[in-house]
Design a protein around this nucleic acid. Structure first.
Length: 276
DNA sequence: CCTGAAACCTGTCTGC
DNA sequence: TGCAGACAGGTTTCAG
């Protein structure tokens, strides 16, 4: 679930307060506890737990779908929520959520809790974040991300458009939901080969990507199933999860196909596939 | 370079 | 009601 807008929403809440809690920037960590060892990708669990006592969280940032907790000057904790991870701040007196995999005990009487039912989420603690983040493509909402930059990333690629939008080395932060929504708004079929796009189509895709991500951000992300309550972008879906229902634009039925092992939703009339 | 499959996991929903 | 099976937002690794 968590894609760029959801991760950014969580980062903002940790930085500025929100989701029922005050900011954690400036808080000193008393101790770290790892309840599911595989959650820690780097270093080993003993070194991870030993690192935290006395450290201060000095900043919160986001890169792609990664959260970055700046810990004193030299160290950063990188957190990837994958499918079901969430970060919560609760009083130490509150019972831990059912799927807590790791938590930091803060010296102001609160805890930063990593809750993750499916156990796919990961934490890295490192002085060199580039070893983890170095492969990521550009940030789609960065002012430096222009239609030309997008064209550059897609140039010469014969893969399906949908597969490339999900590839974090091409573009950082887009996942299944925002990819489908962007393709619909751009009028592009998910199976189009990237190198067949015209300049105008790339510009339309650029606009659509920025539009859906910004709209998602403005609505605090999308809340699906039981996760990430508080977001409202799910009410703006035009294709995602709407297979069999009518397209708001043209009245055609939304179709669902499998692309790159992911369910993909599109309108066959608004997003035609030209003969290749 | 590209595609597909499998693996990592648990919870929820559907259909028999 | 019970249970097997399918499916879910992500990423990595491997085979062809």
């Amino acid at each position: 679930m968590p894609e760029l807008p959801e991760v950014e929403t969580i980062a903002r809440a940790l930085r500025q307060g929100g989701r029922g809690a005050r900011p954690i920037v400036g808080a000193r960590v008393r101790a770290a506890r790892v309840l599911w060892p595989r959650t820690v990708a780097m270093p080993d669990v003993a070194a991870f737990e030993a690192h935290w006592p006395g450290r201060v969280i000095t900043g919160i940032a986001r890169r792609g779908k990664f959260l970055r907790l700046e810990v004193d000057a030299a160290w950063q904790a990188l957190v990837h929520l994958r499918m079901s991870g969430d970060l919560l701040v609760q009083p130490a007196t509150a019972p831990l959520p059912r799927h807590t995999r790791l938590y930091l005990e803060l010296d102001d009487g609160r805890r930063l809790i990593f809750d993750d039912p499916r156990k796919f989420g990961r934490w890295w603690l490192t002085t060199d974040p580039q070893t983890v983040l170095g492969h990521l493509g550009p940030e789609p909402l960065d002012p430096a991300f222009t239609p030309e930059r997008l064209a550059q990333r897609l140039r010469g690629r014969r893969a399906r458009l949908k597969a490339l939008l999900l590839d974090q080395t091409v573009l950082a932060g887009v996942g299944n939901i925002y990819a489908d929504e962007a393709l619909h708004r751009a009028g592009l079929h998910p199976l189009r080969r990237a190198h067949t796009l015209t300049h105008d189509e790339i510009t339309a895709l650029w606009h659509a990507l920025r539009q859906v991500l910004q709209e998602g951000l403005a609505l605090n992300g999308a809340s699906i199933d039981w996760m990430y309550r508080g977001g409202a972008f799910q009410n703006q879906f035009r294709v995602y999860g709407r297979s069999g229902q009518v397209c708001y634009t043209c009245g055609e039925r939304i179709q669902r196909v499998r692309v790159a092992q992911r369910s993909t939703h599109f309108c066959p009339r608004c997003q035609p596939l030209p003969s290749e």
